[in-house]
């Protein structure tokens, strides 16, 4: 028996919008720790890891570990039927081949049940080792989204370079080139508007902008994003979900031949 009640149902709606472009089908894993997902895109270039900790739910019952295969487009269709202020409850019986999403309006005058068929998905779980990153950049998520969108109108790839001067995003295409430098800026009114660079040593890596743009679908989940870079590792682009967990995207770099 599984029953997860999330008062801030809009969070789940945003989570689906954040991952459905990258991944088509995925297993949602439910355990005492929380509600989680790990999945790669079809070309195995990017990986998304989601965690919603059990403590973040108003009610969390998961009698035994359960893995539920879902088509994310279909989940998104179902969740789009929930109002933005609705309370969402996810329910599944042991051994059932369906999951139920229940939507309650805030004043309880409307209750809807949407039952969705589950699917068998062969997914590979990958071990992601803890790593020391050469540089971690924290910046407003909207700013990062804007940079990725702007650069993708010029080129297909971005070189992200971190030095003590700041973080530079560079691209080149048929019509020209572009460079955007963001300097560390801690002297802002609100901490979420700051750009903070923690650098152990300078690092420069090249990534496909198409994937980074896809990651920015998570922007509504968090006002800030952190970008962790090391020369021999995929970049980690993390959006924290307040009090609950995170959506982390891993993207393999482009490698010079």
């Amino acid at each position: 028996m599984l029953e997860l009640r999330l008062v801030q149902g809009s969070l789940l709606k945003k989570v689906l919008e954040a991952i459905k472009e990258l991944v088509t089908d995925a297993n949602f894993d439910c355990s005492a720790t929380g509600f989680s997902l790990q999945a790669m895109d079809s070309s195995h270039v990017a990986l998304v890891a989601l965690l919603l900790r059990s403590e973040g739910f108003e009610h969390y019952r998961c009698d035994r570990n359960l893995s539920m295969g879902m088509n994310l487009g279909n989940v998104s269709k179902m969740l789009r039927c929930a109002g933005s202020d609705d309370i969402i409850t996810i329910k599944a019986d042991d051994g059932s081949d369906t999951v139920t999403f229940m939507f309650e309006s805030p004043n309880q005058d409307k209750i809807a049940d949407f039952e969705m068929k589950l699917m068998d998905i062969d997914s590979e779980h990958l071990g992601i080792p803890d790593a020391e990153y050469q540089a971690i950049v924290r910046m407003p998520s909207g700013e990062f989204a804007r940079i990725c969108k702007d650069l993708s109108s010029i080129g297909d790839t971005v070189i992200i370079s971190v030095t003590k001067e700041g973080v530079k995003f560079s691209t080149a295409g048929d019509i020209g080139t572009a460079n955007i430098v963001c300097r560390q800026n801690k002297t802002v009114d609100k901490p979420e508007e700051a750009t903070v660079i923690e650098m152990q040593e300078p690092v420069s890596l090249t990534f496909a902008l198409r994937y980074l743009n896809s990651f920015t679908k998570a922007t509504p989940l968090s006002e800030t994003v952190s970008i962790s870079l090391s020369s021999d590792l995929p970049v980690v682009v993390e959006y924290k979900i307040a009090d609950m967990g995170y959506v982390r995207y891993y993207l393999a770099p482009k490698i010079e031949e």
Binding site: H44, V45, L47, L126, G127, P234, A252, E256
Partner: peptide
């Protein structure tokens, strides 16, 4: 040209 890396060459299956 740079070649696109693959996640599976960085993270191993558990």
């Amino acid at each position: 040209d740079a070649k696109q890396g693959n996640i599976l060459s960085f993270f191993k299956k558990t």
